[in-house]
Computed example of a mutant assay.
Amino acid sequence: MPGGGVIDLLVVGGGPAGLATAVHAALAGLETVVLEQRPAPVDKACGEGLMPSAVRPLRELGVELRGRPFHGIRYVEADGARCAEARFTAGPGLGVRRTELQAALAARAAELGVRTVRGRAVAEVEQDAAGVRLGGLSARHAVAADGLHSPLRRALGLHRPQRGGPAARYGLRRHYAVPPWSDLVEVHWARHAEAYVTPVADGVVGVAVLSGERAPFDRQLARFPRLAERLPEAAAVSAVRGAGPLRQRAAARVAGRVLLVGDAAGYVDALTGEGVAMAVASAEALVRCVVAGRPEAYEQAWRRVSRDYRLLTESLLWARRRPLLADRIVPAAAALPALFRAGVNLLA
């Protein structure tokens, strides 16, 4: 153990949510250990665009971020006929490869004395009034930051399967060695899918496609003919990564001495690009509750922190699922630029 002390917080999951929690905990003086089954660097299919609401708190934590700045969001119809854009008023966002974000967070955690134990799968938990035991280690409290399909969420009986309701959505991501053509993140809208184009380096863009229809990346990209023209197959520089179903429900964020953060705590959709910002904000709230000796207060804190994200994402998804409304999302954003700017900057 760092310093030889008792573990105060045992974090299961070494992605952005888990590492942000570990950094907050270390800064608060908690003895913290991270368990991560996968080798570094940890990658994941995501849009890789950090909104200003994620960039600011990460830098305040001392995380050294390197990437390509972007200055707003542009909605584009699949055929390129109409578009709408909103620029940030609170500073730029940052396009950052997921592996680089994870590495930067891991470096900051290590700098603060957080130890990471790799190659240890955790799917069971034991706890009593004195502490919690998992992965062969004991701690005063534990955090489940083990992702969208969190085994710990299931082990704790907190997973709530989706029955009926909206169709499942899935994400695919690939990188292309083409110069970014905009200083904005572009969201291209087709009838049944969106494509998110994020500048992540001077000569690289990341393209993430979200859809309710499971199909190979090339077939999904073909839904966006104007975008596909810019992305020749020969320019692809990464393999396709996938994730889903995206919507995940949790009955609660607290089970005794175990608290859930990030995607493990429940997830609506990637449509608004707020996953990392939400993870960092909820990590701060979680650590504050643990330090105060009131872990049970985290449930209400999580609901408060995530309220705007859940409301806006659910509202946009509601419109997205209705073909007549979905076809009018970009025209409406173009016709109501002040409202579009307000929505984008509320998230930013």
Score class of each variant (00 low, 15 high):
139 A>D: 01
117 V>P: 03
132 V>E: 08
148 L>W: 11
146 D>M: 05
108 R>A: 01
148 L>N: 11
112 L>W: 06
151 P>W: 09
92 P>I: 13
87 R>K: 14
145 A>H: 01
104 A>Y: 06
141 H>Y: 15
148 L>H: 09
105 L>F: 07
107 A>R: 15
121 A>I: 08
129 A>M: 02
80 G>Y: 08
88 F>M: 06
102 Q>V: 15
115 R>K: 12
148 L>M: 11
145 A>T: 00
83 C>L: 14
137 L>F: 12
135 G>K: 09
127 Q>I: 05
100 E>Y: 05
140 R>Q: 12
142 A>R: 00
93 G>P: 06
118 R>V: 08
150 S>G: 05
150 S>T: 08
155 A>V: 07
155 A>Y: 04
85 E>T: 13
115 R>V: 13
141 H>D: 00
146 D>E: 11
128 D>H: 06
144 A>W: 00
94 L>D: 05
96 V>F: 04
136 G>E: 09
145 A>N: 01
155 A>W: 04
156 L>C: 03
102 Q>W: 04
147 G>I: 05
134 L>H: 02
91 G>C: 13
150 S>N: 05
148 L>Q: 11
154 R>I: 00
87 R>V: 13
138 S>E: 15
121 A>C: 12
96 V>Y: 02
80 G>K: 12
140 R>S: 09
85 E>G: 12
130 A>F: 07
98 R>N: 03
121 A>M: 12
152 L>C: 11
86 A>M: 09
123 A>Q: 15
120 R>Y: 05
103 A>N: 05
116 T>W: 04
102 Q>E: 15
105 L>M: 09
142 A>L: 04
88 F>G: 01
93 G>R: 02
87 R>T: 12
114 V>G: 03
87 R>M: 11
125 V>C: 07
113 G>S: 06
123 A>E: 15
80 G>A: 10
81 A>F: 08
124 E>A: 15
157 G>I: 07
80 G>R: 12
96 V>I: 14
81 A>W: 09
116 T>M: 13
155 A>T: 11
103 A>F: 09
94 L>H: 10
